[in-house]
Amino acid sequence: MPDVISMEQCRAARALLDWTQEELANAANLSLSTVRDFEKGRRTPISNNMLMLKQVFEDEGLVFTYHEEEIPLGVEFHYTRLRI
């Protein structure tokens, strides 16, 4: 699987979790402007930041799907993370 997600996948993943951009930025330890600019298509995060975004979502039980294993396609839940 690729280490990148698209801005559309990011927005969809955030919606599935009912997270604000600020909540995502905090969870990924990134600036709010990084998340905002990415989701607006202004810039692509550096590779470490992209990995953090993807990892945070995957830790919450989301799985990113790709067409032919390289073109971002979608996002879906695979399990619900137990919160204590």
Rank of each mutant, 00 (worst) to 15 (best):
L53N: 02
R83S: 09
M1Q: 06
M50G: 04
P72F: 09
E68C: 06
A28H: 02
E69F: 10
L62Y: 02
L24E: 00
A13H: 01
S47W: 12
W19A: 06
L30E: 07
M7H: 15
C10Q: 03
N29R: 13
T65C: 07
T20D: 10
M50S: 07
P2H: 01
R42T: 08
M7K: 15
V4C: 10
N49M: 12
F38M: 11
S33D: 12
L62G: 02
N49I: 09
Q21G: 10
A12Q: 12
F38Y: 03
R11W: 04
V63Q: 10
R43H: 05
H78Y: 11
E76T: 13
F77C: 09
H67Q: 10
E60D: 08
E76F: 08
E39R: 07
V75D: 01
Q9V: 06
P45K: 05
E60G: 01
F38P: 02
F57Q: 04
R43S: 15
R11A: 11
A13C: 10
A12Y: 07
A15N: 08
L53E: 00
L53Q: 01
E8Y: 12
I46M: 14
P72T: 08
F77W: 15
A28V: 00
D37C: 11
D37M: 11
N48H: 11
R81A: 10
W19V: 03
T65G: 11
L24N: 03
L16C: 07
L30K: 02
Q21S: 03
E8I: 08
L51G: 05
D18V: 07
R11K: 14
E68Y: 10
Q55W: 09
L24T: 12
P45T: 08
S33I: 10
